[in-house]
């Protein structure tokens, strides 16, 4: 991947300058352009492989016409506060969502992942039911995530070890599983790999919980068949958005 062009739409000048610097420091990107106001159907955006849109800006709030948006949404990353992303994610389908509080490394990683070609797997059946397995040895976090998911009509089953998680996934055949990478007995990667090797569990969507900025973990997770990832520390609402997105229920 060399010289990918990025447009920054709607970001106020100081933030655009900061993002420009971050993107220029990363390998594989050219100097981004930052038009403040631009129509999604505009020809200006055609040469750009990636568009970062500030959804809370006046430009972002004006991008609501689904027909016009269809021309850019598969290469557009929505950036904003989680509370602003939540309603947006339910009405529009962007390529990626990135909370404003994300670290530089996470933003760049999301950009890099968004530039990868779509990997559709037509054989994969749609997720069924509303049971989610949450596997993390940190019970303080799982109890908060559980509450967030239950508010969205999901049923949560908790596991504190990789072994328990695998047993629960095999028994319950949930629609999704949220796996911490580092767990006692079997780690999250092993659980992911064993789940993916079972044809019966092909419909189960998997989100990995990784330590912050562990790019190698994320790449390994995607290689093993994870559907998305989220870095710790995280916002439970962001996890809910990502989970609903992989389940196709937004």
């Amino acid at each position: 991947m060399t010289g990918k062009r990025v447009a920054l739409v709607g970001f106020p000048p100081p933030q655009a300058a900061e993002l420009t610097q971050i993107i220029m420091d990363a390998e594989g990107f050219t100097r981004p352009l930052s038009p403040l106001q631009v129509d999604p159907a505009s020809d200006i955006l055609k040469p750009f492989e990636l568009i970062l849109l500030d959804v809370e800006s006046s430009a972002g709030t004006s991008w609501t016409d689904p027909e016009k948006l269809a021309q850019v949404q598969d290469r557009c990353i929505a950036v904003g506060d989680v509370s602003a992303l939540r309603p947006l994610a339910s009405s529009l389908s962007f390529r990626e969502y990135c909370p404003r509080s994300s670290s530089t490394e996470e933003l760049l990683l999301r950009c890099t992942l968004a530039l990868r070609p779509h990997t559709h797997s037509p054989q994969r059946s749609a997720p069924v039911g509303s049971t989610v397995v949450l596997a993390d040895d940190d019970t303080s976090v799982t109890s908060i995530v559980r509450r967030a998911l239950e508010r969205n009509g999901m049923t949560c089953e908790l596991a504190a070890t990789g072994k328990d998680a695998l047993a629960l996934i095999t028994r319950l055949k949930p629609c999704a599983a949220v796996l911490d990478v580092h767990m006692p007995t079997i780690d999250g990667f092993e659980v992911l790999s064993r789940t993916r090797s079972s044809a019966e569990l092909a419909h189960t969507r998997i989100i990995l919980l990784t330590g912050s900025e562990q790019e190698s973990d994320v790449i390994r997770g995607f290689t093993l068949g994870a559907d998305d990832y989220i870095c710790k520390p995280f916002n439970p609402m962001e996890l809910t958005i990502r989970l609903m997105r992989v389940l196709g229920r937004l």
């Binding site: 989680v82 940190d138 303080s140 976090v141 908060i144 520390p233």
Partner: peptide
Amino acid sequence: TALSGLRDS
């Protein structure tokens, strides 16, 4: 543990 696992509000 909650402080080190969560962010934002």
